[in-house]
């Protein structure tokens, strides 16, 4: 699947807005929002998020990759996906 980093981010963000613990409440997810610490993804949400990433981008998240450094922000998760897709683009520099 070819997709730009922006498309990856948008897909993740809209998934979180729909499925996250926010439960439809108006939440705004920026690339560096701490989605774990703020509770947008809880212990249930992590299962749904892994499924979404694997099904949407046709990648595999190994159990030992379920680390805070890969899931704390959508920037980190996007970078993980980009790496798995074979580096379709350059990693976004931190703003």
């Amino acid at each position: 699947m070819k997709c730009t980093e922006e498309q990856i981010f948008d897909a993740l963000a809209s998934f979180l807005v729909q499925e996250g613990t926010g439960g439809g409440a108006a939440i705004v997810v920026a690339p560096d929002t701490d989605i774990i610490g703020q509770g947008l993804v809880d212990s249930l949400g992590i299962f749904k998020l892994i499924e979404f990433v694997e099904e949407t981008f046709a990648v595999t998240i190994e159990p030992d990759e379920v680390l805070l450094e890969n899931f704390q922000t959508l920037r980190a998760l996007r970078n993980l996906i980009v790496t798995k897709l074979g580096g379709t683009g350059q990693r976004l520099a931190a703003r």
Binding site: S43, L44, F47, I50, E51, T60, I61, P63, D64, V66
Partner: peptide
Amino acid sequence: AYAAAHTIDRCLRRRARRDHHRSIFSSQ
């Protein structure tokens, strides 16, 4: 219970990947 239901669903829908789905369940 939630994690198992989620994982069983994935295992039954994508049988080829069930070892993987189970490994995520186990580690979590």
